[in-house]
Every structure is written in structure tokens, then in C-alpha cells.
Amino acid sequence: MSAEESATTGADASLDGAASDVVRDATETREPLPGTGGFAGETDGNLVRDVLGRRPLFVDADDASAWAFDPRELPAPVSVPAGTVAPVGERPDPEASDRRWTLPDPDPMEDDDAALAAVRDAVLARTRALGGDDSAGDVAVAFSGGVDSAVVATGVPDAPCYVAGFEGCHDVAAARAAAAEMDRDLRVVELTHDDLREAVPALVDVLGRTNPMDLSIALPLFLVAERAAADGFDRLALGQGADELFGGYAKVEKAPEDPRVAADTVRGARHELLGTLPDQAERDVLAIRAAGIEPVAPLLHDDVVAAALDLPGHLLVDGDRRKVALREVARGVVPDSVRTADKKAVQYGTYVSRELDRLARRAGYKRRMDDHVERYVRALVSDGPVTPPETDS
């Protein structure tokens, strides 16, 4: 396992994701993309978390000298902001000079062929690195049948692919079709209401979040990771970050008309969306680790990020085509039917959001109530059985 793919099991247990000399150099030079897959921890008396927050890190709200990778180890955990370098014992301030690294916003490359070649080289190098060492056999792939996870899967051609979902959902159907086209071993985690009821308390415990959106995204990841861990795998490779990096969202496509983004260009909207990655990475990494397996996101490696940042807007979104550059990179790497496939957000493509809502309504939390699903979640993680609430007037 490479340094950037390792967790706290490396030689320096106080750092997660990178060697101390790499982080030290990046700290001194203020280089935001020093060639890692993200890092967090303590070095030279400072707490550090990389510019995209790809590894979680927490300090205690009441004792800033106490920090941890797992929030459950602290009485009052608070996330360390991405890009931070701050002395241990001083609570990091995201508005102050503690923010050592900021994400570059370079001018786009003028040569489309050169821009695409740089992305292709970076993506293929990082995905192939998954299978490039003696530990390649310990990798499983989270697989939805879309271009992101399919490209990742090509890096480990012998690894099994896992998909979770309820009967009849989009993601399972898409994954089955893509796996057949790619001749891959697909293992389907067929979800039930019991799976959700049992997993929600574990996720709330580790995430400290009860909002339905975060839980609906984390639940299928957690349940896939749990199955892969039970099957004996140590790492779970994911396509996380592709939508943010390569323009996969409708709100990026529709900038500046879409009110969900403030930016007035596609590249500006992409940059805005990249700012959401630390919160997402914290959720996803903690959920997967709680299942007993280590996540690896090759499409969020610094090399891929740097190449993607150089892309002009029309190689992110062109008309109604999104993730243009990534789909071009995938040409000849995955079947065209997979390369061009539409993708649904995981919470909808797996039916997890729908079924969590159904569970809430069956328990008496009707849609006319404010935050009815979150109220159900809070009841589910409290002591004792879930009981229907008093009818709202």
C-alpha cells in the first residue's frame, strides 16, 4: 500500500495519508497539491489537513490539545478545516492565517488536446496504481455502473465490484449491465428495511449527523463497505470526487442561471463545488471506515486534481454533456455504453432516500410534519423502540 493510500497504520501513526517529510515540505512551500491523496494529522507540533480535506481530522471543542481521526474518541469533536496548519493546543480558525493552503484556480489550458492528455495520464496512472503493488488483491470496488466507478475498476481488473440497492433500483440495474459489458465479477448487496434500521444508529454515532441527505448518501456506502470487509477486503476503491472535479452536476452545467451556485461560469461553479468536498469526504471516509475497511479515491489524487483544474469550461460541460473530459479519457478504456451512461445520485439511484422516507411514514412521521424523516432518525437512535409521534395540529 502506498503512503498516500495508507491510513494510520503507517510508520508515522500521527499522520494519515502521507509521510511526514512530504507534509513538512508542503507546509514550508505552501504547495497545496504535493502529490498525495490527501492527509491529516499532526507533524512538527502542528495539526494539518490537506487543501481538499480528503482525510477527516477533529479537535475537542473544550480541549484543543486533544485531537483524533475518529470523532468518537473526543467528548466534543469539531472538524479541523481543510487547508489548515495550526499549532496543537490552539483551536484552528478557518478565517485566520491557520489556512495555509488554498485550492489553485489557474487559467484554463488553451490546447484542448494537451489538456485532455494531461487528464488522461493522471487518471490512468492513479487508477492503475491501485493494482500496481503486492497488496492489489486486497482491493474491492464500489461500482454503480457509471463512468466514474468503471474507470476506477479498470485499474484493478481482477477485483470484485460491489453495488448496493433496493430491488428494482437504477444503480443495481446499471451496475449489472456495465459489469456484463466489462466482464466483471459483480456482487449485489440487496438492501432491506432492516438493513437501514440497523445501520442508521451506527452511522449517526460516527458521523454525528441526523440529516436525511447525508444518511441517504452514507448508508449505501457503509453497507457496500461492510459486505466487502466481510468478504476479506482491506480497501474499497471509489469514484468519489469525479462529479465535483469534472462538472457532473446540473447546477454546474446551468451556471449562471442556476440559483444554487453563485458563480457565473462553468469553471467558477466547479470551483465552488470543490469547496464542498471536505464535508463530503468526512462523511464518506468515516462511514466506510466504520464498516471496517479503508477507502481509496484515486480520482481525488493531487495529480488528477491538478490536471482537472487546467481544463477549459467546454471540457467540463458542453451543451447538455457533462464530465466531457472524463468521458473522453474513458474512450477505449471502458465500453461506450458505460462511458456515456447517465448517472443518478446514489441516494436516489439506490432507492435509499425513498425507503428511508417510507420507513419514517410507516412509523407515524408523515410528510406534512416538518423534517419528518430526521425526526424518525432521531427517534430511531434514541433508547427504546420507535413510537409514533403525537399528531401535529
Rank of each mutant, 00 (worst) to 15 (best):
Met1Thr: 13
Glu4Asp: 14
Leu15Pro: 00
Asp16Trp: 09
Ala18Gly: 11
Asp21Ala: 06
Val22Phe: 07
Leu33Val: 15
Thr43Leu: 14
Leu47Val: 01
Val48Arg: 06
Asp50Pro: 02
Gly53Ala: 07
Phe58His: 10
Phe58Trp: 03
Asp62Thr: 09
Ala64Pro: 10
Trp67Ile: 09
Trp67Met: 06
Trp67Arg: 08
Ala76Asn: 08
Ser79His: 01
Ala82Phe: 04
Thr84Trp: 09
Thr84Val: 12
Pro87His: 11
Gly89His: 05
Ala96Phe: 02
Ser97Tyr: 07
Ser97Ala: 15
Trp101Asp: 12
Trp101Ile: 12
Leu103Asp: 14
Asp107Trp: 13
Met109Leu: 12
Arg120Val: 15
Asp121Tyr: 01
Val123Asp: 06
Leu124Trp: 07
Ala129Gln: 10
Asp134Met: 00
Val141Ala: 06
Ala150Arg: 12
Val152Asn: 09
Thr154Tyr: 01
Thr154Ala: 14
Gly155Trp: 03
Pro157Thr: 14
Asp158His: 10
His170Thr: 13
Asp171Pro: 09
Ala174Tyr: 06
Ala174Ile: 06
Ala175Phe: 01
Leu186Asn: 13
Leu191Gln: 12
Leu196Gly: 01
Arg197Thr: 00
Leu203Glu: 03
Thr210Cys: 14
Asn211Glu: 13
Ile217Leu: 03
Leu219Gly: 08
Pro220Val: 06
Phe222Cys: 04
Ala230Tyr: 00
Phe233His: 11
Leu238Asp: 02
Gly239Glu: 08
Tyr249Ala: 00
Tyr249Thr: 01
Lys254Ala: 07
Thr265Arg: 11
Leu274Lys: 01
Pro278His: 03
Ala287Asn: 07
Gly292Arg: 07
Leu299Val: 05
Leu299Ala: 14
Asp302Phe: 11
Asp302Cys: 08
Asp303Gln: 02
Ala306Ser: 12
Pro312Val: 02
Leu315Glu: 05
Leu316Asn: 05
Lys323Met: 03
Val324Tyr: 14
Gly332Trp: 08
Arg354His: 05
Leu356Gly: 02
Arg362Lys: 09
Asp370Gly: 12
Asp370Ala: 13
Arg375Trp: 09
Arg375Thr: 13
Arg375Glu: 10
Tyr376Phe: 05
Leu380Asn: 12
Pro388Met: 08
Pro389Asp: 13
Pro389Gly: 14
